[in-house]
Amino acid sequence: MTQRDAVFPANRHALYEAHGYSAAIRSGDLLFVSGQVGSRADGTPEPDFAAQVRRAFSNLEATLAAAGCSFDDIVDVTTFHTNPENQFETIMMVKNEIFPRPPYPNWTAVGVNWLAGFDFEIKVIARIPDRESRRNGSDQSG
């Protein structure tokens, strides 16, 4: 049976402790990242929507880094939006900065009516690069 290992970013924020969940779980060569929101270190939402989306990606980046991953290792994305029609343009602007060129990860966007005070959440699955790939700075898979 594959071992499950909890992964937390260096500056673990209050939500993980308050709600009893792991930032990510490493299982084999996959990393399953819990939904990341645009929370400040104390767990409160970033009030400006664009800043909240950027902070969600920043929190995601910190969690990926804690497992030796980067945005390039993401294979599947699910995002949750409280007002997709009005938020789409802002989200696409940030998304295009993070993923500027193909190959893009799979992406599913879901409209929801509640995110515990937040307006955007992103969860991903990433492939953890092997040590040789990290050392060489490249992905050996094809």
Rank of each mutant, 00 (worst) to 15 (best):
F120Y: 12
Q87F: 06
R55N: 15
R127F: 10
M93W: 00
R55S: 13
A116M: 11
F99C: 04
R134N: 08
M1S: 15
G28P: 06
G142W: 03
A41F: 11
Y21P: 01
C69R: 02
P100N: 09
D42R: 11
G111S: 15
Q36P: 02
L15S: 09
E89V: 07
Q52F: 04
Q36F: 00
R134G: 11
Y104W: 12
V75A: 10
G142Y: 05
Q140M: 12
H19G: 07
T108A: 08
T90K: 03
Y21F: 08
I25S: 05
A51H: 00
P84T: 07
S133W: 02
N83M: 10
D119K: 05
G68P: 01
Q87Y: 02
I128E: 10
I98L: 06
N59G: 07
F88N: 09
N11P: 00
G142F: 12
P45C: 11
A18Y: 00
Q52A: 15
V53E: 00
A116I: 07
N136G: 11
G137W: 07
Q87V: 06
N86H: 09
D130N: 10
I98K: 08
F80Q: 06
F49G: 04
I91N: 02
L31E: 04
R135K: 13
I128F: 08
L60C: 04
D48H: 03
I128Q: 04
E46R: 04
I128V: 14
S34N: 04
S141P: 03
Y16F: 15
S133T: 13
G43P: 01
E121L: 06
F49Y: 14
S133L: 01
S58L: 13
Y21G: 01
T90I: 13
S58G: 13
P103L: 14
D130Q: 04
S22M: 03
H81V: 00
M92L: 13
G38A: 07
S70K: 03
A109D: 03
N96V: 02
I128T: 08
P103N: 14
M1Q: 14
A6C: 09
S22Q: 10
R55I: 13
V7S: 06
P102S: 11
N83G: 09
L64S: 07
A126G: 12
D139C: 13
R134F: 06
N136L: 15
N113I: 09
R131T: 15
I74D: 10
C69I: 01
G28T: 09
E46D: 05
T44Q: 13
R26T: 04
A109Y: 00
A51D: 12
M1T: 15
E89K: 03
S138E: 13
N136M: 14
L30H: 08
R54F: 03
C69K: 02
A126N: 04
P102N: 09
G111Q: 14
V33P: 01
S70L: 02
F32C: 02
P47C: 05
I25D: 09
R40Q: 14
A65H: 07
D29S: 09
R101Q: 13
S70C: 06
D29C: 02
H13R: 13
V53F: 02
V7Y: 01
W107I: 11
A14Y: 10
P84N: 03
V112N: 04
V37T: 15
N59W: 00
P45Y: 04
F118N: 03
Q3E: 15
S58N: 10
I122E: 01
F57D: 01
V33W: 01
D5Y: 11
L31V: 01
F8E: 09
H19W: 10
E85G: 06
N106L: 12
Y21W: 00
D119L: 01
